[in-house]
Structure formats: structure tokens, C-alpha cells
């Protein structure tokens, strides 16, 4: 089948898609967006998290056909011409990236958290990120990164007002 949708603001089209293919597979193997990761393909690790119409989902659990005419935003769509999103920069600065395989999913999930709740408590952060496994960092630096991104975003809002 053919699937047409918007990925990171651009229209994309995938041909010869097999019915059993996931959105994750289509993104990674058919439309050249391998940033979303494939650590379990079972909805357990969060490494494949993308926005589907502004809601974070595990793209491995979404059938490709389900995204017809919808909008997908992946980790590749977080930065813009002006540079990295504050969440991305904070992950680098705080040392929250080791192997980085969990990073794309965590970035999308964190981005969503800070959109909804600009100043989350530590427990809010842990709750929001509890579906994203990281095997390398022990999460401490990820906590630091989210706090840092929150602080910087709030500061930015503060100064621009």
C-alpha cells in the first residue's frame, strides 16, 4: 500500500508498504528518518517515541497505515534553523548522552513534558519519563538535563517578555 503523511513539516510518501509495517519501520527504512530508535519494537523502551499529531507515541506500536494524512514529528524535527532545541542542548551539556540510543525518545518525551509543564517537580519528571529506558546513565544526568532545559526555557520566556 501507499502511505502519505507529514513528517517534520514535509509531505512524505512511502510505496509498497506491507500491512504489518510499523510507523517506526517506515520512518527508519522508507523515508530516511532513522533517528527514532528500535530497541525493543514492543512498546517497552520508548526509544522510538515520536509526536503523532502532537501526542507522543511509541512509533513501533503504530501501524504505518494509521498515519495516513497525519502529522509526525521525530527527533530530527526538534531543531530548527536557529539551532538545537533547548532540550537537545541541555542533554549534551548535562552529560545525559552516553551511547545515545535512548536519547531520541527521551528528547521527544521531555519536549512534550516541558510543553505541558514548564517547571516540573523531580517526581513529575520521573513519572513523565518512566516509559523511556536508558541503560547507560543511571538517569541522574537525564534528570539534570531536564531541570536545565526547564530552567533555560523559563529564563528565555522571562527575558523575551
Amino acid at each position: 500500500m501507499r502511505v502519505t503523511f507529514t513528517a517534520n513539516g514535509k509531505p512524505v510518501e512511502a510505496d509498497d508498504v506491507w500491512e504489518g509495517e510499523s510507523l517506526l519501520y517506515v520512518l527508519r527504512e522508507r523515508v530516511g528518518l532513522p533517528g527514532s530508535k528500535n530497541a525493543c519494537e514492543q512498546g517497552e523502551c520508548g526509544s522510538c517515541t515520536v509526536y503523532l499529531d502532537d501526542v507522543p507515541v511509541c512509533s513501533c506500536l503504530v501501524a504505518a497505515g494509521q498515519v495516513q494524512d497525519r502529522e509526525v514529528r521525530t527527533v530530527e524535527g526538534l531543531a530548527d534553523e536557529s539551532g538545537l532545541d533547548p532540550v537537545q542542548q541541555a542533554f549534551i551539556d548535562a552529560g545525559a548522552v552516553q551511547c545515545g540510543f535512548c536519547t531520541p525518545g527521551l528528547l521527544v518525551q521531555t519536549h512534550d513534558l516541558l510543553e505541558r509543564e514548564p517547571q516540573p517537580s523531580d517526581t513529575d519528571i520521573r513519572e513523565a519519563l518512566s516509559g523511556n529506558l536508558c541503560r547507560c546513565t543511571g538517569y541522574e544526568k537525564i534528570m539534570d538535563a531536564v531541570r536545565l532545559a526547564s530552567a533555560r526555557k523559563c529564563q528565555k520566556v522571562g527575558t523575551s517578555e
Binding site: 521525530t74 527527533v75 526538534l78 531543531a79 538545537l84 537537545q88 548522552v97 545515545g100 531520541p104
Partner: peptide, 9 residues
């Protein structure tokens, strides 16, 4: 490799 990793590249 940090920038590439956070950009998904």
C-alpha cells in the same frame, strides 16, 4: 558525537 546524537543523525 553529542550533537549528532541529539539530532538523531
Amino acid at each position: 558525537d553529542g550533537t549528532l546524537k541529539v539530532k538523531g543523525e
